[in-house]
Amino acid sequence: MNKKITTLVCLGIFCLGAGISARGQSAEEILGKVDAAVSGAAAPRDMEAVMTMTITSASGAVKTRRLRVWSQAAGGGASRRLMKFLSPPDVRDIGFLSLSDDQMYLYLPEFRRIRRIASHNKSENFVGSDFSYEDLGASAFSLSYAPSLAGQDDATWTLVLERKPGSDKLYKRIRLVVSKEALLPVRMEIHDNSGALVKVEEQENGRAGSYRVPVLIRMKDVKSGSRTELVMSDIKVDRGLTDEVFTQRNLQRRAQ
């Protein structure tokens, strides 16, 4: 009898625990995991990849650019990034270096000059794509946004991120759909200061080594109808990139 009661009690506790663990993750916890996977402890320390950027205008005109991208976690949820254009020929060797939100540099090979780009340029679209400079950065969401859990299903959580007071981020609100399995975003609905939906980003995630990384990102500008697709290939992670990679010196070296 006692054995039966004990078994039942254990079973009950087990079920209760399972139920709690299924419901129990708070929005903050989920967002923390996303930040860790994107730019924190669970993210690659550094990454090198080839990015193919396809920009399709509202009228259907298509432009394709290939870049080599290096990124490195810089601590505190921030990251450093270097991009060099490989094609088309008229933009080959143009380089973009982002050391922080207010330290961005552009290298123009024909003039052999590096120019620092003003920080409030981050709202400008990157080379005519639908990604702003800020979109391409990889800072932690939780530094600037307060999350709330809007829903979930078997595969995803849906968080609503509201910009924190005092934050200088561009977007007032982001509806973030996170993959439970990859702990990475799969969809972002981005709202501007007036609350209007302005962009929708969709992401497909893949594997690089032991990490889950985005391999395809699509951004659509809801108002203009244009869209940009970034396809990541030749992804290499944790190669021990040195600080020297993320310097102005390296910025002006020819793309390989």
């Binding site: 008229d90 933009v91 552009l106 123009l108 024909e110 003039f111 120019r115 794509s129």
Partner: peptide
């Protein structure tokens, strides 16, 4: 603003480099 000369650059690549700044405007 970049190079101190209010002129059209003397190469197509120079124009393309500058055009890079204007893309999307």
């Amino acid at each position: 603003q970049l190079n101190g000369s209010y002129a059209v650059p003397d190469t197509d690549t120079g124009v393309a480099n500058l055009w890079f700044f204007l893309e999307g405007r």
